[in-house]
Amino acid sequence: MRVVLSNSSGVPLYQQIKDQVALAVLSGELAEGSALPSVRALARDLRISIITTTRAYTELAAGGFIATVPGKGAYVLPLDSALVREQLLRQVEDGLQTALDAARRAGLGREELIELLDGLLQTEHC
């Protein structure tokens, strides 16, 4: 797994780490039981504070993605189907919000948006 950080994105570094690790878990890139780099190793590799990596790992653990074992490290937990669904719904909502923002700027109305979505769904099923 590779973590790429951007200082200019406006998203806190710990959130970028959390999001990328969570996505890797949800996509299967990181399998159940996979070991993550230690907090210190990740901080060193990314050239960031240990506090930042600790916060990312703490939030990943709180979200049910990883478990930390003192003296052993952090490991990927089995995926909970409710957790996976919630994360995917959040991604859909974020994507739809981005689309709505663009539609407003383009002056599109509700009916035009529904037509666009229906067209995309039909294209996908062909």
Results as ranks from 00 to 15, higher is better:
I17F: 10
Y57H: 12
S8A: 10
L46M: 10
G28D: 06
Y75T: 15
A24E: 08
R47C: 12
A74G: 09
E32A: 14
I48R: 11
R47A: 13
T53G: 02
S8W: 09
A62I: 05
E32G: 11
E32Y: 04
P12M: 03
L13A: 15
A31K: 09
L36M: 12
F65L: 01
V21C: 01
P37D: 06
L30Q: 00
A22F: 00
V11S: 00
I48W: 04
I17A: 09
A24K: 06
L60S: 03
G33Y: 01
A67L: 11
A56P: 03
I17V: 10
L60K: 03
L36T: 07
P37R: 13
A62D: 09
R44S: 12
A74T: 13
A43G: 07
L30A: 01
L26C: 01
K72A: 14
R44D: 08
V25E: 01
A74W: 02
S27H: 06
V69K: 11
E29L: 07
E29H: 04
A22Y: 00
A61F: 06
Y14H: 11
T58G: 13
A43E: 04
A67S: 15
L42C: 09
Y14N: 07
A31F: 09
S9E: 06
P37A: 14
L60I: 09
I50S: 12
A74N: 04
S27A: 12
R40L: 05
S38C: 06
L60N: 01
S27I: 00
A62R: 14
G71V: 07
Q20A: 04
A61I: 06
A67D: 15
A62Y: 05
L42H: 06
S34M: 07
T53I: 07
G10T: 00
A24Y: 05
P12C: 04
A67R: 15
T58W: 07
L42V: 11
L30V: 01
G10V: 03
Y14E: 07
A74F: 08
F65A: 01
F65T: 00
S49T: 11
G63M: 04
A62L: 02
V69N: 10
R47P: 09
T53P: 00
A56S: 07
A24I: 06
Y57N: 09
E59A: 10
L30R: 01
Y14S: 13
K18A: 13
A35D: 06
R47M: 14
I50E: 14
A61Q: 15
Q16I: 03
A22V: 00
T52G: 03
P37W: 06
